[in-house]
Amino acid sequence: MSAARRAGLGLCGLFGFLVLIELLPRTGLVPSAYFPPTSRIAVALWDQVLQGSFWSALGDTLIAWGLGLLIAVAGGVVAGVLLALVPWLRRFTASTVEFLRPIPSVALIPLAVLLYGTQIGSTLLLVVYAAFWQVLVQVLYGVGDIDPVAEETARSYRLGTWARIRYLLWPTGLPYLMTGIRLAAAVALILAITAELVIGAPGLGVRIAVAQSSQAVPQMYALIAVTGLLGLGINLGARAAERRLLSWHQSVRGEAVV
């Protein structure tokens, strides 16, 4: 299938989706009080866009997301590389990592409320906790993927620690790190919105909660659509960055061919 045809079909699908949402409430198949048609959501969205408070809420969400992601990536990389370079440390921490990783970060919600209330700190706590493990685990996978022959070559030529990081760890680990960042970016958004929605920390989530409690249904849908677009943008951006940074790497080249 040609790229143009794919794009055409995709646009048709998108258009059909919007038309469906328009028609479902209009024909009375679903109650329009709960499910406003596309046009009314679009009007509500436009209304939001004209308000300064919408933009500051969007900004708050993005700041919490970005800052949390940054901390998580930095922490994940430092911890991952440290564990990679010191084998006994990795063995020492393996069980703890395996135990802490699956703990759902929403378990920390009450703790966040007690510590930070409705401030941005609550959001950051949840975002960092959730995103950190994504990065760390991918970095550890990446380190585990180092070609043993390359490793032995490096050792037989007596490369120092720094050279091993530069020429062995970095190129092997980078694709995994990028995957980790991509996954972490998506998870970070989920937790940022969750914190705002459930705790009431500033951002889009709290606006959704307000719209919900004041029965402003079209506004609520419009804001939810914004979070979806945000998520979409983050996914596409992360994938584009991955492709650009790793254009030399097999996994990306392989993907491009298919």
Binding site: M1, F35, A186, L189, I190, I193, I224, N235
Partner: peptide, 29 residues
């Protein structure tokens, strides 16, 4: 393949929705 190409953008959007925002919508129904 045709179905996939048609639905892909919509599915990408639905996947990108942070799942917790579904709670208020589904509560309505």
């Amino acid at each position: 393949a045709q179905l996939r190409a048609t639905l892909e953008p919509v599915l990408e959007f639905l996947r990108a929705l942070p799942p917790p925002v579904l709670v208020p919508i589904i509560m309505l129904f």
